[in-house]
Nucleic acid binder design. Structure first.
Lengths: 344, 344
DNA sequence: GTGAAAGCGCTAACAT
DNA sequence: ATGTTAGCGCTTTCAC
C-alpha cells in the first residue's frame, strides 16, 4: 500500500520520483532533464523527457517556486475593463508574458474591493512583476509592492512622484498632434471632453492639446468633463457642448469610448461628421473602424507598449544590464471621418 | 550572518518562522492562526494575526499548496476575446472566483497556440477547476484535464459527447423566442446570420429559431454564414441578404457583434430599423444599448451563469453533496429597436 | 555525468 | 491549547 500518492481518481500521482524509478535514474537526473542549463548527457535528457511525456509528468511549479524563489508568475491588475481598449491589451499582454515563460495571475478590482486591495493579494504569489492596468490606483500600491520586493509596471498610466515604472503612450504629444490636425482642417473653435478627472491619460492629453492651441494662437479650447470614460458620459458631454450658443466646430475626446458617445449625440441632433463638426478620439479601439463611426483617432502603439513592458519585465527579472526605465511611446493619428459619409 | 533569508532589497524575508520567533511561539501556532478551522486560543490568534500584519507576513501559497494538495487556483482559458461579451464575463467571473478564495490564472489562446494548448499549461498548476471561455476548443481539452484529475467547465459552450461540465444560456429557447418575437411583429420572411460554423452557440440558436418558424407554419428561414463572429462579417452577411431579390424582412443574428455589423450594413443602404426591417441579436453586450444601435437582443443571463459556474466550482471542490451537473439557463428578450429612430 | 542529501516554507498528524 | 516532527515535490550543492 503506497502512502497517499494517489489522485482523487485513483491513478497514481505523477511526480519526479516515479519517473526516476521508472527509468532507473535518480530524481536529480529527472530534474536536470527539465532544466535547460543543467549539465546532463543529451541522450539521458531525451530519454527522460520522452518518458515523462508518456507518463504525463510535468514538474510541479509550486515546488519549483519554493526552492528557486522565483514564481514565474506575472500579476495583472485590472479594474474598469468596460473600456474595450483594455481587453485588447489584456489578451496581447497575456500572450506576450506567456511567451516569456510567465504565467498570468489576474486580479480584477471591483467597486467594493478597489484595485489597491488587489496588490496584497497579488503579492502573496511573489510575482516576478505586477502590471497594473487599472485607471484608479493609488501610488500606495507601488510602495507596498516595493516593500515586498516586487516591481510594478503601470500600463497606460503614470503615477506621479513615485519610483514606479510605467509604460505609456505619449499623451502630450498625442494631444498636440490632434490640435494640429484640427487646426489644419480649419477649425478655430475647439473643445475637449475630459474623462476621469484624475486620470493622467485625460490630464496629459488635455495639456498637449491646449498647449498646442495656445502655440498656434488659438483661444483656449472649451473643456467639458465627462466624469468617467464611457459612452453615456461622452454622449452627455457632447450634448452639453453642442447646446452652447458658441458651439465648438471640433471636439477632441479623451478616449474613443467618449468619442463614440459624442458621435451618437451628434447623430441624435442630426449633425454630421465632417460636414458640421470634426470629432477625434484617442486609443483606436476596434469599434473606431466600424463604418458607422469611422472615427478619426490617435492610435496608441499597443504592440510597442506591450513589447516595452516585456522588455522591462525581462530587465527586472534578470537584474543585469541597464536598470529598467519608464517608457513613453509615440502613437499616431489615424484619419477616418475626415471624409466620413455617415447618415447620408 | 543569517543564511540566505534576505530579500533582493536587503530586508529579511518574512516567513512564519520569523513571526514565531518574534512572538515566542512555535511555527505551528503561526500557521494555526491563519487557518480558520484550526484549534487555537482566540487571544493567541489575534496576537499572531496582528503582529503578522505589522511585519507584513502572509503565508506562502506555494508552500501551502504543496502540502495541502490544493492550489486554490482557477484556470481561465480564453481565446477570441474580440467579442465584447467575454471581457464582461471575464471580469465578473474573476471577481466571483476571488470571492470564493480562488485566484485566477489566465491563459490566452492565440492563433499560433490554440486554446487547446493552454490546457497542459494550466494543468501544471493543478487548478481546482478550469473554466473555458474559448469558442474554439476541442473535447480533447476536457479529456486531458480529466486524466490529470481537474474538472473543466465550459462557459457558454457545450461540447457534445463528452463528460464535461458546461454552463450555457438556453440557446435553443432563445432562438425560439426570437422567432416568436419576429413573427408576432408580423414578419414572414426571416433570415438568420450564423457565426462560427461549429460553434454550438450558433448551431443551437439556429435550431431553436428554425424549429419555431416551422411550428408556426412559416417557410424555413434563410441562412447566411458569416464565418466568424465579427462586425465585418456581420456587415458582409447582411449585405448579401439585403441584395437578394426576395430580401428578408427580419434578420436574426447569432450574436450582437454580427447584429451591429448588420445594422451598419443596413444604414449604408439607407435602410432603417424598424421601418424597413427588424434585426435581433444575441448576448446583450453594452453596445447594444447605445442609442445609435438600440439593438433588440436576447440577453444572456450572465450573472446567473457566473453564479452557476461558482456553484459547480464549489461542488467540485468540496466533493460532497450532489455531483455537479451541467447547467442551461434561460435568458430573455430585450426589446429596443422596435421603436428605433436612428438616422432620422 | 550522475546520485545523495539538504532544505525551500508550510501544514498536519502526533505528542504533551 | 501549544510544540515537535515529518514530509509536500522539487532544485541544488556536494561527492563521486
Amino acid at each position: 500500500m503506497s502512502k497517499g500518492n494517489k489522485m482523487p481518481n485513483g491513478t497514481d500521482k505523477m511526480v519526479a520520483k516515479r519517473v526516476a524509478e521508472d527509468l532507473g535514474v535518480s530524481i536529480s537526473t529527472v530534474s536536470r532533464a527539465f532544466s535547460p542549463t543543467a549539465v546532463i548527457a543529451r541522450e539521458t535528457r531525451d530519454r527522460v523527457l520522452a518518458r515523462a511525456k508518456e507518463l504525463g509528468y510535468q514538474p510541479n511549479p509550486f515546488a519549483q517556486s519554493l526552492i528557486t524563489q522565483r514564481s514565474r508568475i506575472a500579476g495583472i491588475i485590472v479594474s474598469d475593463i468596460t473600456n474595450p481598449f483594455y481587453p485588447e491589451v489584456l489578451t496581447g499582454m497575456t500572450e506576450a508574458l506567456q511567451n516569456e515563460g510567465l504565467n498570468v495571475m489576474l486580479f480584477a478590482g471591483t467597486s467594493a474591493r478597489g484595485a489597491d486591495d488587489m496588490v496584497p493579494l497579488a503579492l502573496r504569489y511573489r510575482p516576478d512583476v505586477i502590471v497594473v492596468m487599472a485607471a484608479t490606483i493609488s501610488s500606495r500600491a507601488a510602495v507596498e509592492a516595493a516593500e515586498a520586493g516586487t516591481r510594478v509596471i503601470f500600463f497606460n498610466r503614470y503615477v506621479p512622484g513615485i519610483a514606479a515604472l510605467s509604460v505609456t503612450c505619449d499623451n502630450v504629444l498625442g494631444g498636440r498632434q490632434v490640435a494640429d490636425h484640427l487646426i489644419d482642417l480649419g477649425h478655430r473653435h475647439l473643445a475637449f471632453v475630459a474623462g476621469l478627472l484624475d486620470a493622467t491619460t485625460s490630464v496629459e492629453r488635455w495639456r498637449g492639446f491646449s498647449e498646442r492651441c495656445a502655440e498656434r494662437g488659438l483661444p483656449a479650447p472649451l473643456k467639458e468633463d465627462a466624469g468617467v470614460f464611457s459612452h453615456d458620459t461622452g454622449y452627455a458631454a457632447a450634448l452639453r457642448l453642442l447646446s452652447l450658443k458658441d458651439r465648438p466646430d471640433a471636439i477632441f475626446c479623451a478616449n474613443d469610448i467618449l468619442a463614440l458617445g459624442a458621435l451618437d449625440a451628434m447623430a441624435s441632433l442630426g449633425l454630421q461628421v465632417p460636414r458640421d463638426l470634426s470629432v477625434v478620439g484617442f486609443d483606436d479601439i476596434s469599434m473606431a473602424t466600424w463604418p458607422s463611426y469611422s472615427l478619426t483617432t490617435y492610435r496608441q502603439p499597443v504592440r510597442r507598449m506591450i513589447a516595452a513592458t516585456i522588455e522591462l519585465t525581462r530587465q527586472i527579472i534578470t537584474g543585469d544590464g541597464e536598470p529598467p526605465q519608464s517608457r513613453c511611446i509615440a502613437g499616431h493619428l489615424v484619419e477616418r471621418n475626415t471624409t466620413r459619409k455617415r447618415h447620408e
